[in-house]
Amino acid sequence: MRITHFGHACVLLETGTARLLLDPGVWSHGFEDLRDLDAVLITHLHGDHLDPDRLGPLLAANPDAELITDPGSAAEVVQYGLHARALRPGDDIEVAGAAITAVGGAHAEIHPEVVVPPNLGYVVDHGAFYHPGDSLHVPEQRIDVLGLPTGAPWLKVSEAVEFFRAVAPRVALPIHDLTLSRAGIDSALHRFDTLAPEGAKVVVLPLADTQEL
């Protein structure tokens, strides 16, 4: 699988049969010129995962791409003239030969007084890649490459490390880091490296860089 990181939570997956873009939000850049997409997947409606102002033109430039979201995002994009296929936890679909399973369903708690939207994680090709969105849901599938949240208002480094260990992927790809300073990112990456589960490695992708993972 080829993976490109467009900053924060946004990644492009090229499975060999499908081109899937996940969570193109307001803090991510470089995805706007992508073509030949088969689907755009949104984990939840927060702006750092869903930028409707750029999503509309992106879908117009990729007329064959299906917009796949959680129920909350599906309701949100309607006001922008977009139609989404809303999934729920446990749903299994296929897009251009790629298997996608929706998991989780709940956004991590930010604060007891802060209302959070639904959040789906997406397991692609039976565990080849897992994007949890804003959650620490551990899926039942064995995961090869994990999109590992690095920093967020709902996250402590210790929680991220325990999530990393619980999922125990072959590779952890740090994502969701733009709530942190450079020093904070480096500190979290150091903890991921030193506290990784046995056999796992952390691979940091520079902005818009593509690697075969």
Rank of each mutant, 00 (worst) to 15 (best):
L120I: 08
E32R: 12
G25K: 04
A99L: 13
L87K: 09
A200S: 15
E109P: 05
L189Y: 10
E66C: 10
L173F: 12
A152D: 14
V78S: 12
L41V: 12
I143T: 02
V95N: 00
W27V: 01
P112L: 02
A106G: 01
I143W: 01
D38P: 09
P153R: 10
L189I: 12
R165P: 04
D51E: 14
D70P: 11
D134A: 15
T101I: 07
L59M: 08
I42R: 07
H126Q: 14
H8D: 15
A74L: 09
W154F: 14
A152E: 06
G16C: 09
G105H: 03
D53F: 14
V95R: 03
A18Q: 04
L173S: 02
D51A: 13
S181L: 11
G184C: 06
P197F: 12
D53Y: 14
T150P: 13
D70Q: 10
A160K: 03
A99R: 15
A152N: 13
P117W: 09
Y122I: 07
L178P: 00
L173C: 12
H107L: 08
P24M: 04
L207G: 03
A166K: 13
L82R: 06
G56V: 15
A108F: 03
A96K: 04
V161M: 11
R142S: 14
A160P: 10
L67M: 05
L155V: 00
E159C: 01
F163A: 03
V171A: 10
N62R: 07
A60K: 15
I143N: 04
E66N: 06
R35S: 15
G133Q: 08
C10R: 02
F163P: 04
G90I: 11
E140Y: 06
T194I: 10
P52C: 10
V138T: 05
R19D: 01
P206F: 09
L50N: 04
A84R: 02
P149F: 08
K201L: 10
A128L: 14
D144V: 11
R170G: 11
V124I: 15
T4W: 00
L148A: 07
A86P: 07
T210F: 06
P24L: 04
Q141E: 15
P57D: 13
G199H: 03
R165N: 13
R85D: 08
P52A: 08
V78W: 02
E212M: 10
P57I: 05
R191S: 13
H137P: 09
F192E: 00
D92Q: 11
A65E: 04
D33R: 14
A60W: 07
G56H: 11
G97W: 06
A86R: 03
G199S: 05
H107V: 02
W154K: 04
A108S: 15
E109Y: 03
L13W: 10
S28M: 05
H137D: 12
D209A: 15
L58H: 12
P89T: 01
L67D: 03
I42Q: 07
I42P: 11
P118G: 08
F164I: 01
G16D: 14
H83Q: 13
R182C: 05
R85H: 14
A39M: 04
A108G: 14
L146F: 09
I143G: 02
P24D: 06
D209V: 14
V78E: 15
A172I: 00
P169E: 11
T150K: 03
Y130E: 01
G7L: 07
N62V: 01
L207E: 11
D36G: 05
G147N: 08
L22Y: 15
A18L: 08
L195R: 10
E140H: 13
N62Q: 09
Q141D: 15
D92F: 07
